[in-house]
Design a protein around this nucleic acid. Structure first.
Lengths: 186, 186
DNA sequence: CCGATGATGTCATTGAGTGACATCACTGTA
DNA sequence: TACAGTGATGTCACTCAATGACATCATCGG
């Protein structure tokens, strides 16, 4: 046992989400989040590089899972099928916590600065996927394109999933990818 | 003639780009930009909602041109062909000033906050294109998907254009779109 | 000549973010 | 047992982005 309550970062994440739901992101100061978590604002910035970052905790795990799915896909798979495997991996990781996803989404979509950060995370994801595709031998303009297209599918599908009626995330993403294929063929 | 030098916004844009090229975005304060432009920092914030926005002046025009291209495309065109028309319109608007685009790009790509804002502008563009496609009768999941895919093509193509050897932006974008079609078919 | 207008300046304030340094429980080791 | 080292946290001071309130003043219409 340490000198302090354990898991300061987790407490900060919880406190932040609570306060953001209660009164909105802009109306919440870092000092207030820190106070609810039982630390000071200085400690907040030791765990999170800025005020927004506290809402984007699991993004490295999601990225790692999607990259792993790309790397472990059959060697013969076409690029977009590999991307499909990455989307399935993402759905497995996120699709189970719809209530949490919805709450977090309501906070993020209500604030422009948070939407910006979300886009940045998606772009980082796309860059990692593109790298992984290049590692499989997909040549350069196509690797980036397949990755970006995959992220576009993810974003459109995810938004439909959190906003719309009950459905499995994996199914929504698969349908969106199928739609993209139809579009490109038409 | 006004009481002050005209075109304060233009002077601020010029001063900002100069300073950002000279010493980088983070190492430049709003007060310094304003001083070089001959105004105060308070005036800077009257023209631009935040420090980053001064670098994204023409984005409304680009958006308007692309939306207009979508709206004036032949009624029989498939969604992705309509998007292609929008990309052509974008290339016409941007493709001429490669030196400026390169300078601006070097500033933006060197800073995470600016890349975030750039992504936000792209997303706003995608939303506007999706709206325009819906206005043409493209049903809802596909409109968003086609718009996002088009923006993905634009981003990948634009980056290739500014970074790579001499080529026409319109050609690079057309090639990227063709690549996307190949990917989706494969 | 005068009052309205609009662009700008001045001032005060809040809050994000950072660097420097102090504190203090716990750990291992002599 | 004592003591130096480590690591997480607190404290303090500071810079700078961003905003609201109010003052200033040249120009324009009457």
């Amino acid at each position: 046992m340490g000198r302090w309550e354990p898991d300061a970062a987790g407490r900060l994440r919880t406190a932040a989400l609570e306060l953001h739901v209660e009164r909105g992101f802009e109306q919440t100061t870092v000092a207030e989040i820190a106070e609810r978590a039982g630390v000071t604002a200085r400690t907040f910035f030791r765990y999170f590089s800025d005020k927004r970052e506290v809402l984007f905790g699991g993004s490295e795990h999601l990225q790692a899972a999607m990259v792993a799915a790309v790397e472990s896909a059959p060697a013969a798979s076409a690029p977009l099928d590999v991307v499909a495997a990455a989307l399935t991996a993402a759905a497995e990781m996120i699709g189970g916590n719809r209530a949490y996803a919805e709450q977090r989404w309501s906070v993020i979509s209500a604030n422009a600065d948070l939407r910006e950060r979300e886009l940045m995370k998606m772009e980082s994801l796309a860059a990692a996927l593109a790298d992984a595709l290049r590692g499989r031998g997909v040549p350069d303009p196509r690797a980036g394109l397949a990755a970006e297209a995959g992220i576009a599918v993810f974003r459109v599908g995810f938004e439909r999933w959190v906003s719309g009626p009950t459905a499995e995330l994996a199914d929504v993403l698969a349908a969106a990818l199928a739609d993209l294929r139809v579009l490109a063929a038409g």
